[in-house]
């Protein structure tokens, strides 16, 4: 069973905490927008993505199992 990374861009304030936790998945670029580099990261990355979910101060990230 895979999973999908979903960001609510209405909540996201581009502070890049998630990128510090999982740079393989999240990148805030110089234009100040957050880019999700992989919507379907590997299982190996799941703990990091879960940490990003908890660390995001706006609770903008969620994981959808699929």
């Amino acid at each position: 069973m895979g999973y999908k990374v979903v960001v609510d861009f209405d909540l996201c304030e581009s502070n890049a905490i998630c990128m510090g936790v999982a740079p393989e998945v999240f990148e805030v670029r110089d234009d100040d927008f957050l880019y999700v580099l992989q919507e379907h990261p590997s299982e190996e990355l799941r703990p990091k993505v879960e940490e990003a979910v908890q660390r995001c101060p706006k609770q903008a990230i969620s994981i959808e199992d699929e």
């Binding site: 502070n15 890049a16 990128m19 510090g20 740079p23 805030v28 110089d30 100040d32």
Partner: peptide, 10 residues
């Protein structure tokens, strides 16, 4: 400038 700050943090 979050994009740069986070890189320094890392």
């Amino acid at each position: 400038w979050p994009a740069k700050t986070v890189r320094y943090r890392m």
